[in-house]
Simulated assay, not measured.
Amino acid sequence: MNQKPAYNDFSTFLRNHFECKVQKISLNAGFTCPNRDGVKGKGGCTYCNNQTFNPEYCKTEKSVKEQLEEGKLFFARKYPDMKYLAYFQAYTNTYSELEELKQKYEEALSVDGVVGLVIGTRPDCMPNELLDYLQQLNEKAFLLVEYGIESTNDATLKRINRGHTYAETVDAVQRTASRGILTGGHVILGLPGETHDDIVNQAERLSQLPLTTLKLHQLQLIRGTRMAHEFEEHPEEFHLYEVDEYIDLVIDYVERLRPDIVLERFVSQSPKELLIAPDWGLKNYEFTERVKKRMRERGAYQGKLYRY
Rank of each mutant, 00 (worst) to 15 (best):
F88Y: 03
F88N: 01
Q89P: 06
Q89E: 10
Q89N: 08
A90H: 04
Y91N: 08
T92M: 07
N93C: 13
N93W: 11
T94L: 13
T94F: 07
Y95N: 10
Y95F: 14
S96E: 10
E97T: 14
L98E: 14
E99W: 06
E100A: 12
L101S: 00
K102A: 04
K102Y: 09
Q103D: 14
Q103E: 15
K104M: 08
Y105V: 10
E107M: 07
E107P: 05
A108D: 13
L109F: 04
S110N: 07
V111R: 00
G113L: 05
G113V: 03
V114L: 13
V115F: 08
V115R: 06
G116Q: 05
G116S: 06
V118R: 01
I119G: 05
G120H: 04
T121V: 13
R122Y: 02
P123F: 02
D124K: 15
C125F: 14
M126R: 03
P127A: 14
P127K: 09
P127T: 11
E129P: 03
E129D: 15
E129A: 08
L130W: 13
L131E: 13
D132H: 14
D132N: 15
L134R: 11
Q135Y: 10
Q135E: 15
Q136V: 12
L137K: 08
L137Q: 12
N138F: 03
E139A: 15
E139T: 13
E139K: 14
K140V: 14
K140Y: 14
K140M: 13
A141Q: 12
A141G: 04
A141S: 14
A141N: 11
L143S: 03
V145A: 00
E146Y: 07
G148E: 01
I149F: 01
I149R: 01
E150A: 08
S151M: 02
T152P: 03
N153T: 05
D154P: 07
A155F: 08
A155L: 11
K158P: 00
R159C: 11
R159H: 15
I160E: 03
I160T: 02
N161I: 01
N161M: 04
R162W: 03
R162S: 08
R162M: 06
H164P: 04
T165Y: 06
E168I: 01
E168F: 00
V170G: 01
D171L: 09
A172P: 02
A172K: 00
Q174K: 11
R175P: 04
R175C: 09
T176G: 02
T176Y: 12
T176R: 05
